[in-house]
């Protein structure tokens, strides 16, 4: 199996505050990894280091064979292969759904306009929003916006997808539709790193669940191992606090 992600000794500080305190992790091609943990434990920071939206302060990160932590690396080239989905969707508000999908491929000269448009429509069909192609973000529900955001990331044909709490900003009735799209993506063999509070999704879809606390990977294993028989006290405490509600 080729390794899609190789992280070793990753550290990240904001000023005096050390948020990531030495993370080692390898992720296989096609693997779906869910990252869980209490608020403020560094999950988002970790994810954002993987495409250098945050600059790491120590250790090495390799994604897709590219050394992300190397300052000389052309990060824009590497990012073309790393899709990211944000909690707040972050769609381009002045562009239609279709234009959101076409933007990066056309700007980066990956495709001609006509080809990008065709691809955009295919992706909108895939996320069930072909009838919303010409809608602006404000005309879409949160769930629809997030599905467009996923499609926008897919438009660059990434090898790996990063999700940062993709359903946390959604009304409960819209969570399902977004998780469904992600589930299909996982079944298609996409390598995925998902920060989530959706324990049901993690249990169903993840190949591996990571538990992060205070900037460290405290425990990891199959969903069964983590949810049914956690070994660490901190994992147990966290799970009992989230599963109760």
């Amino acid at each position: 199996m080729t390794k899609k992600v190789k992280v070793s000794g990753l550290r990240k500080s904001f000023g005096k505050l050390e948020v990531l305190r030495g993370i080692d992790l390898e992720i296989d091609e096609g693997e779906v990894v869910c990252l869980i943990g209490p608020s403020g434990s560094g999950k988002s920071t970790f994810l954002r280091c993987l495409n250098r939206l945050e600059e790491s302060t120590g250790g090495t990160i390799e994604v897709d064979g590219f050394e992300i932590s190397d300052k000389k690396q052309n990060i824009n080239k590497v990012r073309e292969n790393i899709g990211m989905v944000f909690q707040q969707f972050n769609l381009f508000t002045n562009k239609t759904a279709k234009a959101n999908l076409m933007f990066a491929p056309v700007q980066l000269k990956k495709m001609k306009r006509a080809q990008a448009e065709k691809r955009a429509m295919q992706l909108l069909i895939r996320v069930g929003l072909e009838d919303k192609a010409n809608s602006y973000p404000h005309q879409l529900s949160g769930g629809q916006q997030q599905r467009v955001a996923i499609a926008r990331a897919l438009a660059m044909n990434p090898d790996i997808m990063l999700f940062d709490e993709p359903t946390s900003a959604l009304d409960p009735e819209m969570v399902g539709e977004v998780l469904q799209v992600m589930k299909e993506l996982a079944m298609d063999g996409m390598t995925m790193v998902v920060v989530t509070h959706e324990m049901g999704f993690a249990r169903d879809v993840a190949d591996r669940v990571l538990f992060m606390s205070d900037g460290l990977l405290v425990e990891q294993g199959t969903p069964d191992e983590i949810f049914s028989a956690p070994k660490e006290q901190r994992t147990k405490d966290f799970l009992s606090s989230v599963l109760k509600v």
Binding site: F86, F103, A104, Q107
Partner: peptide, 25 residues
């Protein structure tokens, strides 16, 4: 900043992001 990060995460340079995402808005 979310839109800027989205643009950067797609592989667009800071310059193109400024020109095509930020300035029009």
């Amino acid at each position: 900043t979310g839109q800027i990060e989205a643009s950067r995460s797609l592989g667009l340079s800071a310059f193109t992001t400024m020109r095509k995402v930020v300035l029009p808005q």
